[in-house]
Computed example of a mutant assay.
Amino acid sequence: MPDREPSITGYLTLGLLAGRDWSAYQLAEQLGRGVAELWPSADRGRYAVLTRLRDEGLVDTRQEHTGKRARTIYSITPEGREALTRWLSTPVRPPSLEFEGMVRVLLSDQGSLDDLRRTLAQTREQARANRDMFARYAAFISETGGTFPERRHLFALANTFMIGHYDHVIAWADWAAQQLDTWPDTVTPATTHQAQVREMLAPGREAWQANGDPSL
């Protein structure tokens, strides 16, 4: 066993190498194809993780030459396959979300109504662009089998989630923008629009009463 567990980026890298050998550039390219939207730190650590995996004995390296140019090719070791298989059998962490636009929404009482509208509009457009990217991936996988045809069924599961996720963000941004129509600013609605706030919170309250404490 390695001295320390690989990071999620490490396991992603092992998963890519489980299917075939790759150069560092090819691995970085694969990690950048939709993975950054699912696991942002994978994009930031995609090169450094290879050194750690090699030091832990989870990947091997060899040199390949094309003319006078040499490149390092990475392959998974039996220990790497064992680590990946073992990790897949462990409990999964709860989902987490990295969403700057939502942080800005929470702090919008310190800015203008136009700032908040702009945040919602930008969030919508970003979600639309990402949804369209995953829609293109879906078409590519459907028509060609994708880069990993042996995993097309698993990519279909993940792709459906990602498109649904961005559809939800788009719908939420449209709905949130409509809520601002009668707001004079980003501060006073806390007291002047209490009925609207209660209406916005009603679905969550009803869900809690149905599944939690009905006394609320």
Rank of each mutant, 00 (worst) to 15 (best):
G212Y: 08
R81C: 08
S108W: 00
R52K: 09
E82K: 15
F155I: 14
L88A: 12
G111T: 07
G32L: 09
E82W: 09
F134A: 10
R104W: 00
L31M: 03
D55Q: 12
G32P: 08
A156K: 14
T119N: 01
L107E: 14
F140R: 11
A207T: 10
I170P: 01
L201V: 09
T77S: 12
R198S: 05
A121E: 04
D185N: 15
R128K: 08
R46A: 05
F155M: 14
Q196C: 01
Q209W: 05
I76E: 04
T72V: 15
T192I: 05
M200P: 00
G19M: 04
L16Q: 03
L88P: 01
A158Y: 06
A48Y: 03
M162I: 10
A42N: 02
Q179H: 05
L157Y: 13
A48H: 05
A177F: 00
D21M: 10
W39C: 14
G212P: 08
Q122M: 01
F161R: 07
H65N: 13
K68H: 11
E56H: 10
Q122W: 01
L14T: 06
T9D: 09
V197F: 12
V197K: 06
L53C: 06
L157S: 09
S23W: 06
A121K: 00
Q209R: 15
G146A: 07
S112G: 05
A176T: 05
W172Y: 14
Q194E: 11
G45H: 12
E143M: 10
T77L: 07
F99M: 08
E206I: 05
T51S: 13
V197M: 13
S112T: 15
T182W: 07
K68F: 12
G32I: 04
N130Q: 10
W175R: 12
A28N: 11
A28Q: 11
E79V: 00
V59L: 08
S142G: 15
G19I: 02
A190W: 13
G80E: 07
R86P: 00
S41I: 13
E98Q: 13
L84N: 05
W208G: 03
F99K: 02
R69H: 08
T123H: 00
A176P: 07
P214E: 11
T66R: 14
D109N: 15
T188H: 07
V105F: 03
S112F: 02
L120E: 02
V49E: 06
T13S: 12
D174V: 12
T61E: 12
Q209F: 06
T77C: 08
A173Q: 01
A24G: 15
I8K: 07
H165P: 00
L113W: 02
R152C: 06
T77Y: 06
A28R: 11
A129Y: 01
L84T: 09
G204D: 09
N130E: 08
